[in-house]
Each structure stands twice: as structure tokens, then as C-alpha cells.
């Protein structure tokens, strides 16, 4: 037995509240990220990802307090992403209790920021988030391109090459989201995930498209992901983290059972 594959619930938050809907039968306030994070932690989540979609400056202050509150009650790794653009942003989040930060758009607009961040804070806390979209036609060799702004803006960057570059610049982990699959509940883009996983030495977190437990297991077994990230299937109690782990274990995947 060795390293377990990780299950990571993702909380999308705006102004300190979980958005995109969280429903729990026995939770007092389903919009409170601290309660939600605690609940996932108790249920056996291996990490928590907190994605801040707050736009305003004042809202960012709230985010820092939320991260502080989560970090003082949740004793598993916490990644904070969304709007991380400067070394000061990273320092603020790490000081608030984040263990890792996710860098997305800022990596595309300024790749050297990733290098500077890894040099200053260590690769172990730098997660580069890659949003990729398939751009090849069906009978072509598959090819994916990096998109920013929620999948609206193409960058012309090849996803595989980009992942290699980000690792060379010091990314310690890649959070890979398929923009084609995100929100579809039809499963990960396994081909994309496998291609990136084979291209780089660091762990890959598969994201985008999870609709059932089979998708999670496929992400590991066929997509060769080291961790799988999901939001809605857990938020709406379609499945618990425990069920997800039991299912993955049945498929022969090593998981941390609690």
C-alpha cells in the first residue's frame, strides 16, 4: 500500500458565502463556507479547495477572514484560488492559513509570476490552474488550448506545452479543468487528463464534469489523475465523500478511509 488518491471538494465562494448551491439536510447554514468545509473534512475529504469568485476589493477582505476561520477549524490541506495576482496576494492567503494557492489567469498573463511565487514560497504551495478546451476536430490528433475568463478567451497556448512550462517554472501541482466538460456532469475529459498527467512529473488534480462516482474512479484509472475535484455531486448530497471513497476502493483505487 502507498499513497492514496485524493478526493477534493471545491467550494465556490463569493463575498464569504458558498455559491453555486450547497444543500445539506442537517446543516444549519448551507452557505457558510466554514460549516461546509468542516463537514467535508469530518466526512473524510482529503483536501479542501476554496475558489474565490469575489470581484470587489471589500469582498476580498471577507475572503481573508473566511480562510482564517476555515483554517482554524479544518486540519487538512486548504487551497485557495481565484484572484491571486501578486506575491502579496499569496502571502496574505498563506498567512490567513491557506496551505496552497491556485494561480490561473495571472500565470497566463505573466508566467514569470509563477516562477517568482515558487521561488519565494516554495513549489509545494503553488498550484497552477489550467482551463483547457479541445480545439482539434474529431479526426485530428487531439489538441487542447488554454482559455481564460471562464473559458471565453482563447490564448493560443497549447495545454500540454503550457503544463510543462508551468512545472518548469515551479508549479508543484496542476489543477486541470476541462472547459468542455465543466458543468456537464458527463465525466472528466480523460484524454486531456491522461495527456497532461503523462507530460509532467507533478500531481494532477482532474476537474470539470463529474456527475457520478464512476466519473471519479475513471479520472484516476483512465485519466491517470492523482486527485479528483468535484463540487455539485457533494454539495447536493447526491453522494457523500464516504460513498465516493468506498466506490473508488471497490474499483481497486487506494484511498484514505476514515
Amino acid at each position: 500500500m502507498g499513497l492514496a488518491k485524493r478526493i477534493i471538494p471545491c467550494l465556490d465562494c463569493e463575498n464569504g458565502r458558498v455559491v453555486k448551491g450547497v444543500q445539506f439536510l442537517d446543516i444549519r447554514d448551507a452557505g457558510d463556507p466554514v460549516e461546509v468545509a468542516k463537514r467535508y473534512c469530518d466526512a473524510g475529504a482529503d483536501e479542501i479547495t476554496f475558489l474565490d469568485i469575489t470581484a470587489s476589493h471589500e469582498g476580498r477582505e471577507t475572503t481573508v477572514h473566511t480562510v482564517e476561520a476555515i483554517a482554524s477549524q479544518v486540519f487538512i490541506p486548504l487551497t485557495v484560488g481565484g484572484g491571486i495576482r501578486t506575491l502579496e496576494d499569496i502571502r496574505t492567503m498563506l498567512n490567513a492559513g491557506a496551505d496552497k494557492v491556485g494561480i490561473n489567469t495571472a500565470a497566463v498573463t505573466n508566467p514569470d509570476f509563477v516562477r517568482a511565487a515558487a521561488e519565494r514560497f516554495g513549489s509545494q504551495c503553488i498550484v497552477v490552474a489550467i482551463d483547457a478546451k479541445r480545439v482539434s476536430s474529431e479526426n485530428e490528433e487531439p489538441r487542447w488550448e488554454i482559455f481564460t475568463h471562464g473559458g471565453r478567451k482563447p490564448t493560443g497556448l497549447d495545454a500540454i506545452e503550457w503544463a510543462r512550462k508551468m512545472v518548469a517554472y515551479g508549479a508543484g501541482e496542476i489543477l486541470l479543468t476541462s472547459m468542455d466538460k465543466d458543468g456537464t456532469k458527463s465525466g472528466f475529459d480523460l484524454e486531456l487528463n491522461r495527456a497532461v498527467s503523462r507530460a509532467v512529473p507533478v500531481p494532477i488534480i482532474a476537474s470539470g464534469g463529474v456527475g457520478n462516482l464512476q466519473h471519479l474512479a475513471d479520472g484516476v484509472l483512465e485519466g491517470e489523475a492523482d486527485a479528483v475535484l468535484a463540487a455539485s455531486i457533494f454539495h447536493f448530497q447526491e453522494y457523500t465523500i464516504g460513498e465516493a471513497k468506498d466506490y473508488m476502493a471497490q474499483r481497486g483505487i487506494e484511498v484514505r478511509l476514515v
Partner: peptide
């Protein structure tokens, strides 16, 4: 092939 860093939960 194993990923490096060794990241996650191990026994």
C-alpha cells in the same frame, strides 16, 4: 511512474 513531489496521504 510515480509523481514527485510525494504529495498526499500515505501510510
Amino acid at each position: 511512474k510515480l509523481k514527485v513531489p510525494h504529495m498526499g496521504w500515505n501510510e
